[in-house]
Design a protein around this nucleic acid. Structure first.
Lengths: 148, 148
DNA sequence: ATATTAATGAGACTTAATCTCAATAAAATA
DNA sequence: TATTTTATTGAGATTAAGTCTCATTAATAT
């Protein structure tokens, strides 16, 4: 309870601080979108955020949702996740717990994984090619335990 | 010269064999599309294949290009590559030389890499979660040597 | 040579995402 | 606090990748 409240306050401050740093305005819409993205740990897409906010009675535009999500991604408050279904998904960027994804091609469920060795090997590959990594995409597609 | 010729013949036979195995027809259009995809090692997209064939005077439909590429991917003659620019790319599936990609976010160039350790670690992750891997996506995004 | 039926072409349609522009509302300033 | 400035917004038009439909065509089986 208290923890959740703190979490929300802290992340609203993170939003405000980021926007100020960039000279952008701390608007009602940006707060609502950020809040919505923070309200669950699922991998949400822009259309879904848009419709959720509309259902809740907020008179928000689709364009605002897309524009705000862009701002959040560019400022590393959100990570963009592409599971190859033609729709970008977004999740809170937990700076100290990076992870990649397993995607079940039967039921669509998304599982997370993290492996330090793979991260290290990626860095070595980049170093060898004198390539400066900014971010990466790593998904394993297949059939999950339940679907087999 | 001889090698290239053999390569084309072999891969046309691969196409024919795959189509027969699936009870599909060996049509002029499928031959042309496969040939076009084989004619360069670049990472091609469907629209580009479509326009290239039209420019060459072939009266082919966009739908046929997309449908044929689907068939080729499903039968593992092509690998689908998604570098996150909203367009699917395709490349000849070299069964004995699997690779993943480094993508320069400045110039768009695509570099290939292969790392057996990463492949093995992926298998371990899947095993731990009792997940049956079918394929994977692995891209490192960043700035290439030339662009730095 | 003919019959069967999968594949094709044309273009309408879908869907995610972007763009435009007049109206609005944060934030800066007085 | 009232006013000014200018970024942001909403509505909906637009774009772009990809899919769908259906009458026609052409591979393959007979």
């Amino acid at each position: 309870m208290r923890l959740n409240l703190n979490k929300i306050i802290i992340t609203m401050q993170a939003l405000k601080a980021t926007l100020q740093k960039e000279g952008l305005r701390y608007t009602r819409q940006r707060q609502e979108i950020w809040n919505e993205l923070r309200s669950s740990d699922e991998h949400r897409d822009a259309e879904e955020i848009f419709f959720t906010l509309r259902k809740r009675g907020l008179n928000i535009s689709r364009a605002t949702v897309y524009r705000t999500i862009d701002v959040l991604v560019k400022n590393n408050l959100l990570d963009k996740l592409d599971i190859g279904d033609g729709r970008a998904r977004f999740e809170y960027n937990e700076k100290y717990f990076h992870h990649d994804h397993l995607v079940c091609t039967r039921c669509g469920k998304i599982f997370e994984f993290h492996n330090d060795n793979i991260e290290e090997l990626q860095n070595e590959i980049a170093k060898q090619k004198n390539f400066k990594i900014l971010h990466h995409n790593h998904q394993l597609f297949g059939i999950c335990e339940d679907c087999q």
